[in-house]
Write a protein that binds this DNA or RNA. Structure first.
Length: 420
DNA sequence: CTAGGGTTAG
């Protein structure tokens, strides 16, 4: 009788630990376990797995891994879920090199990789832009005759991108019934590849099937509408998201926030931010980037700069999109030198950073500087837009620097030969 | 107790 009681209480403790972990309250979760042990409860594999998953998600894989020692000392062996959480952590923090050691350990304990492990790995490879490795994982799934899960298909759809719609048809033809996640995935892929009609068709189908029971599809569609200048329709869907009673998280909130910022309604944006924070939502890197871009758009560069500072203080110091937005704002306002100064102080830049400055320099008719930058971008192995190449060459020509223009052109060609 | 969908910049 006492043992049954304790088991029940362990389950209760686990529910408590899980909800604290979900809220990132890891110290409190640990406290609950300590208290539980204090009153004679025995943490089980679920208790430890919950904790390991949370550490791997919020802190890092090493801390997660250290719990394994604790559970072994308590006489509990890690299982496939333990290792899947560690694999997910390795994938999340780009530490796939740690996986072979994990696999070895699993092998020693006779724990086999399951579909969750494979899905995690496959998804990670696609996200890292290594589709071949992703497909190799899928081959492994088929070879080892592991039963697939609907998530497997969704990961594959994301990996295929451009052919997502066709892939969905094939799935349906082979008897698979796509769920809401599959549909949203395909719709997003359609939009990404400018297959707008196909995308909206999927959205209509989702609504008729009752697949729009949460804000996911609406956010996708509203953002697309905003991006393509269909503001009224975007507003309609966002209005619906607000009034429908969906529980709004930071992502749906960011979508609405973005509409206000793009529309220059910064007062509304700040009001929304205030209410979201009052409701316990934490701003993320998207919130910051959207706000900084919005401030730049209305020309309030000072406030944008301050917001960047606040952002860095709250731990989002490497938010490249926000910095790119700010550089763009500076260029638009004609502060080329300050923009260049910031550009040079940045440790991490991407092709958007370069492109923004190149375009800024072009508009300021500083063609030599623009071409110099374009070439250093190419040397860094980054993709450049055809239009950027065009404007630099045209710019040089337009002020009689035909020799330079030709030189830049041949250097670009040479770089292409070397890189591809 | 683990994996898959929505939000940002040129």
């Amino acid at each position: 009788m006492q043992r049954i009681k304790n088991k029940l209480s362990t389950r209760l403790m686990n529910v408590c630990v899980a909800s604290l972990c979900k809220a990132k309250q890891l110290e409190k979760a640990e406290g609950v376990i300590v208290d539980g042990i204090g009153i004679g409860l025995q943490p089980d594999v679920v208790t430890y797995n919950t904790l390991i998953a949370a550490y791997c998600r919020f802190v890092g894989i090493d801390v997660g891994y250290s719990i394994i020692h604790r559970m072994k000392n308590a006489g509990i062996n890690p299982d496939i879920i333990t290792y899947n959480s560690l694999i997910a952590g390795a994938a999340r923090y780009c530490l796939l090199s740690k996986c072979p050691d994990l696999f070895d350990e699993m092998f020693e304990m006779s724990i086999l990789l399951d579909i969750w492990s494979y899905n995690t790995l496959m998804n990670c490879f696609f996200k890292l832009g290594k589709p071949d490795e992703g497909y190799r994982v899928f081959q492994d799934i088929l070879l080892r005759d592991v039963s697939v899960h609907s998530a497997t298909f969704n990961i594959l759809i994301n990996g295929r991108g451009k052919d997502a719609r066709r892939f969905l048809n094939e799935l349906v033809e082979s008897g698979h019934i796509p769920n809401a996640i599959t549909c949203t995935t395909v719709m997003k892929c359609c939009f990404r590849y400018r297959q707008f009609e196909e995308g909206f068709k999927i959205f209509a189908e989702m609504r008729s099937k009752g697949y729009t029971y949460d804000a996911f599809a609406y956010c996708t569609v509203a953002s697309l509408l905003l991006k393509t200048g269909r503001i009224t329709e975007a507003n309609e869907y966002l209005g619906y998201i607000i009034t429908s009673g969906f529980s709004l998280n930071i992502v749906s909130f960011n979508t609405i926030f973005n509409l206000y910022c793009k529309e220059g309604q910064l007062d509304n944006a700040y009001q929304l931010l205030y209410e979201a924070e009052k409701g316990g939502l934490e701003s993320d890197k998207y919130t910051h980037a959207i706000l900084i871009d919005g401030l730049c758009r209305i020309g309030n560069l000072q406030e944008a700069q301050q917001q960047l500072n606040r952002m860095s203080e709250t731990g989002f110091d490497s938010n490249l999109v926000a910095w790119n937005s700010f550089i763009n704002g500076l260029c638009k306002a004609g502060h080329l030198d300050y923009a260049t100064q910031i550009f040079e102080s940045m440790d991490v830049k991407d092709s958007v950073t370069y492109s923004t400055i190149v375009r800024g320099l072009y508009k300021a008719r500083r063609f030599r500087a623009a071409s110099k930058l374009l070439l250093s971008c190419i040397r860094g192995g980054m993709k450049i837009l055809k239009s950027d190449k065009r404007i630099v060459i045209d710019g040089l020509r337009s002020c009689g620097l035909t020799h330079e223009a030709r030189k830049v052109q041949s250097k670009i060609r040479l770089a292409k030969l070397l890189h591809y």
